[in-house]
Design a protein around this nucleic acid. Structure first.
Lengths: 344, 344
DNA sequence: CTGAAAGCGCTTACAG
DNA sequence: CTGAAAGCGCTTACAG
């Protein structure tokens, strides 16, 4: 049929014998159009195969229905699960989602500024911290154009007042640590993200608090950077195994690192949990098929994703309650077989 | 400054004392503007904080610089790696990428048609098969608007002539199977994707050919659907272990399933590779930390992603060679410890 | 309930 | 090298 050019609103109007304004109304406010006209127009739409040019609509309306999510790594199964929730909600609300991976796709502050100012996106979900200057751009921008909501973690002090949804990371980390303590462990180390990353700050804090409360010392070098990756965790684990005070348990700030950690311990000829017990964080889908199956903190990843997206949607629609602070979602300690009881 | 409204091209023109056409030229064809004028305009751009409204540009130019990738599951580490490559190349070429996950975000044919016709995207990368009708939409659309390129797999017969980049899946599967045979195995089963999925068809075919060539029988029930997931593979593995002719080796069509498979065998009290040997496919980052480390076919995932994106970019720019058939990328059998030698 | 008209912010022949 | 003007396809007060 129209293999040279798609039908435009004009073609529909001509065919239906009405003005383009009426066609537009039929699509956007059908109740404002008489039934007779509506029927004519609908027929014309059908016959021309018309579908509105989204580019023109976005331009005219001043928004794109595209939101951006910034996350540390698309490859991480935990964030994939969050993304899934985001996409479910995004679809329900009519948004497309674009994502930026801070690990592999360094977004410069310039890029960010450009996106914000050039109307390419209607909102931002932050699942990872961006550069300090980026944070500044966002916080100064906040009253203006693009709403931001934060998922999973406290991203940065400047952004503390932004709407967010996450579990209580401090409590969860305490719980994990206390569980280890309850099993008789006293030498407990922790593998974190990079010191610069705020992503696991709260988890580290929870661990420290629990240790202090139990009057257990944290030796120098027991809190170690595992880069949130398998490789990073393997190096960290080697260091821990060579430590003068070798820990009997390691709390990993995410499951990805726990997987690397377990592998490295076994590669060194030690047993998990016989020699060293492990607790992870996230409960990714691999956690139950590691050897041994991993004891970990379960986060409702998909639910977080959904909530964060709905939250953003409300911010975009400028509903007043949307700007209120954090929304806390429940976590759960899942006990499997990577922790052994220790009798001292 | 401009906290009420962003500066537009008019503001710049006024401040620089030139027409908006000249401002536009300065940004798009600076060589067509005299140096003197260019300097004036650049100063005005700087002082107004002007940045072009992308929405208006897209509308006017008729394209968005957004491409869509359709993939089975964002959560799969293999596809994450491919995505990474895509994003690297996309960034280099100035594209943003939107993705559709066929596993969790059923894109209806309607959605697809709408996207195609409403100019929202400049091109499509297919990493997964979509519905037959979807394929039809694409193939009938092909000469018209939106270029499509296929990554990783033969997606569908209708789409066989589309540009694509992937490894030689048949050879790779033969190699995997032959390796098992060379280690003395004769009872070799295979866990595939769903029969309907074309994603692993070539791998299955390669396995069949290798078995036939070695004059080894494939018993009923030895080729079994594992749904490409951990869970599916666990069920499939249980069936295989209960089979009258229990295989001594299992070839899994992806590593994700191999992980589930190994876990299930060990959960049943058997040894890997002592009792049953396993070969995977993909070489995801978890493959080297499974217990035992997984022997598998390595695909250059990131490279595939990059190439596929560059290919698409050339299609969009309508460079003639871009439409030529498949581009084959090398694979490699990575031998680790999940296969045992069998002396019969 | 409907239409004529303005306008969103750009780009690009066209004329000079 | 530069400017005046048309136009991309919609939406939306405004008037009737």
């Amino acid at each position: 049929m129209n293999n040279v050019r798609d039908a435009s609103i004009k073609d529909v109007a001509r065919l239906a014998g009405v003005s383009i304004a009426t066609v537009s109304r039929c699509m956007n406010f059908p109740e404002k159009v008489s039934e007779k006209t509506r029927l004519k127009v609908q027929a014309a739409i059908y016959n021309t195969g018309y579908s509105p040019n989204t580019l023109a609509q976005s331009f005219r309306r001043g928004h794109t229905n595209i939101i951006m999510v910034v996350l540390p790594s698309v490859g991480d199964p935990f964030f994939s699960a969050v993304m899934r929730g985001i996409r479910v909600a995004a679809r329900a609300k009519g948004y497309s989602v674009i994502f930026e991976d801070t690990q592999f796709n360094k977004m410069t502050d310039d890029d960010l500024g450009t996106m914000l100012v050039s109307n390419q996106i209607d909102g931002i979900i932050l699942l990872a911290s961006i550069s300090p200057f980026g944070n500044e751009i966002l916080s100064s921008n906040s009253k203006r154009s693009v709403p931001v909501v934060i998922g999973c973690e406290t991203v940065s002090p400047e952004l503390a007042d932004f709407p967010s949804v996450h579990i209580d990371n401090i409590s969860a980390a305490k719980e994990a640590t206390n569980y280890l303590i309850s099993q008789g462990h006293e030498r407990i180390a922790m593998i974190c993200g990079q010191a610069s990353s705020l992503l696991t700050k709260d988890r580290e804090y929870g661990y420290r608090v629990a240790m202090k409360k139990a009057k257990l010392p944290i030796e120098d070098g027991w809190i170690i950077d595992g880069d949130l990756t398998i490789l990073g965790a393997r190096t960290a684990t080697r260091n821990l195994m060579n430590h003068v005070y070798r820990p009997t348990a390691i709390f990993c700030a995410n499951d990805e690192m726990a997987i690397g950690c377990i592998h490295e311990i076994k590669a060194a000829g030690l047993q998990v949990p016989g020699d060293i017990s492990i607790v992870g964080f996230d409960d990714i889908r691999y956690a139950e098929v590691t050897a041994p199956p991993l004891t970990t903190i379960s986060q409702p990843a998909e639910e977080i994703g959904e909530r964060v997206m709905y939250r953003l949607s409300r911010c975009i629609d400028a509903e007043d309650d949307a700007t209120l602070g954090p929304e806390i979602v429940p976590h759960k300690l899942v006990i499997r077989q990577s922790v052994a009881k220790r009798v001292s």
